[in-house]
Nucleic acid binder design. Structure first.
Lengths: 231, 231
DNA sequence: AACTGCGACAACTTTTTTATTGATTTACAT
DNA sequence: ATGTAAATCAATAAAAAAGTTGTCGCAGTT
């Protein structure tokens, strides 16, 4: 009888991603030894806000969304996680719980790498550490932008930001809008679902975007940038 | 500004569950110090098969289901997890990955307790260890039963087993059937959804059960037991 | 070869979820 | 007080998921 596979080990049996290319053979071996590969199905949680985190996740393929949970069921979407990105890095060096949740928008093949392996390698390999820091900085900058948006902009500016952000992912992932509901878009903008629907219609009427079922095309990017700037 | 709570710390601020009553004040303190409380919303994964496990979960309230994932999207449901039960114990003493997934059927308030705290307490406190072993044994026995069912029984017997199992939870959780889809029931019995639907209809026709929307009442328990025995 | 048990597929119905729209209310800012 | 931004509510429409049913075919049994 064929044993039931916990993860599809054959699918990607080694560390191909560019981010791991700079590791020495020994370091690669260390990571390899303390990693496991998991297939998260569409809808599965990659991380749960508040749960203990003894590892970081590295996405090989598939898209997921990262969000913070508030009271009630009001979530705020932070970003779309793309292949080649880490999730849960923050849990490694500081807090030992995840400070956000994330959920797979499509099936996702993911490496889990234990904390110790990452910290060891970072300490040994400056280039790898540098990359890690760079990722942190980018995330940080994005968080500041998000915070600014939430604090100072109103509906129009927020949804414009959201549309520009997601549209920016469309080149690599043409299907990205199809994966998101109106509620998801609203949760990115931090507004109510109904408001999001109405604003999208307005934007379409104003010739800024086009709505085809769930897909959205940005027609007038400068117009959206304008609205984003006005706030 | 009110800080965003990661978990509802106020909701249950101490360890009330009977299972923790036997701990000495120091032991309780150890557990308390290395625990965190998380609200898993309906549909959230409590555990993901194959992911690293550095903690066990203790369910305070809410129901969830535990299942193993195969290839494709064929899941096999193992059990309903009730308040007062542990999830992921197996990951603590042996393997450091979860060997099953579980998902919240209702919102679930859950303690996560770090591995080390549990092992320490078990080593110190024989009574607590004894309880832990007892839980293991029960789970083990259930797994053997399940295995037997899967190996030797056919559809009728399997679905009878499933109905008897879930019906047994109804006293404490009258709504349990409403939380399960026909696919869920099929996945407990290890048969196709369509077969499950047909068999349920047959059982109703034969006066063994009654179907009201999603709820199911066992009318003739002995009949089901009979079918279960016949296999 | 005929039979049995059961999954797979297809067509269809029902239920649930998501999306949409207008009307109303709340909360600030002026 | 008045106006504006945006959430909430309620009603409906549309889309997606779940449930149902009949038919077929495969794999083992007899």
């Amino acid at each position: 009888m064929k044993p039931i596979l916990e993860t599809d080990q054959e699918f990607i049996c080694d560390i191909q991603a560019p981010c791991f290319q700079m590791l020495s053979p020994e370091e690669a071996e260390l990571v390899r030894a303390s990693k496991t590969q998991v297939l998260f199905r569409k809808g599965d949680n990659l991380t749960k806000q508040g749960a203990f985190a003894s590892y970081a996740l590295f996405v090989i393929n598939g898209l997921s969304k990262q969000y913070i949970e508030g009271d009630g069921s009001k979530n705020f979407n932070l970003r779309i996680i793309k292949p080649g990105e880490f999730v849960g890095l923050s849990a490694i060096f500081t807090k030992n719980t995840f400070n956000y949740s994330s959920v797979a928008l499509t099936d996702c093949q993911v490496f889990l790498v234990e904390k110790e392996a990452i910290t060891t390698v970072v300490k040994q390999n400056g280039q790898f550490g540098f990359n890690m820091i760079k990722r942190y900085c980018e995330q940080n900058a994005n968080l500041f932008d998000t915070l600014r948006t939430v604090m100072y902009k109103q509906m129009n500016g927020r949804i414009a930001d959201t549309l520009l952000y997601i549209d920016g992912l469309k080149a690599e992932n043409p299907e990205v809008f199809q994966l998101l509901s109106r509620k998801d878009i609203a949760d990115f903008a931090g507004i109510s679902t109904e408001s999001a629907v109405k604003l999208l219609k307005n934007f379409e009427k104003d010739g800024l975007i086009e709505l085809h079922e769930k897909d959205i095309s940005v027609v007038n990017q400068n117009g959206l940038l304008e609205i984003s700037k006005k706030g």
